[in-house]
Amino acid sequence: MADGQNNGTRVGALPVTIGAAVLRFWDGVRDFGAFVYSIFQSFKSLRFIRMRAIYAIILQQTKYTGIDALPFIIVIAMLLGGVVIIQGMTNLPKFGIEGYFGNLLVIIIARELGPLVTALIVISRSGSAMATETATQQWSKEILALEISGIDPRLFIVIPRIAATILSIFSLIIFFDIVAFLGGYFISLTTIYIPLDMFFQNLGTAFSLKDLAATILKSLVFGLLIPLASCYYGMMPRSKFEIPIFVSRAVSRTLFFTILLNAAISVAFYFTWLE
């Protein structure tokens, strides 16, 4: 028996490891699903509650996630817009370059960099903060106190953060795009003159409603994913010792799934939709 088991471990080590990993992943997905379901469940108490309590939290969270991140976003957008334009100017042939600046900016900034960089900044600033805050609240029994007060912690902690993050990410992406376009324009002026109105008309033409729809969808998806995952992992720790483990897990997994979903949305919008 012991021999057989040994054999089994040796021969079947890889399948067992993979199988265990798949099962763990599946358990995690199911658990996360249950968490999301419980949040939907908490909507039932929405009709009893006063919006003012949640409203104040949404305001606070929007300030932390959105307004406080704005200077950061503006600087990064300016730099990235400039970099994209400089790369475009040095690498695109001079031929017809005026026509491609707008397209280049829209494709790289508005479609990909804007939403992704914004999401990454929000994860690193607010996602980690949310996970830590939730974990600390869990540990200091604030969440228990809420629960016993008849306040559903999901409704009180997660829902306002989702609302605030969606609002913040959407606004930040738009700010990012505007700043990156302007930054790109002014940097491009050093080498090539394009009239401002022509540049913006060009940009406006290149930026389609489909791009806008993709941007809105991305801000919705990221705005849902970041607080959900952060609070999910934030509620996991059962002891102080586990807080850093789960916070780091929250950040790394949110990052991973954000990039994954960003790619998925881009593929869905710009690949299968190809005429």
Partner: peptide, 15 residues
Amino acid sequence: KNEIGYVHGDYGLIS
């Protein structure tokens, strides 16, 4: 839960 009140040793004030 709205009918009862509860104070526990950890207090759990929202910080």
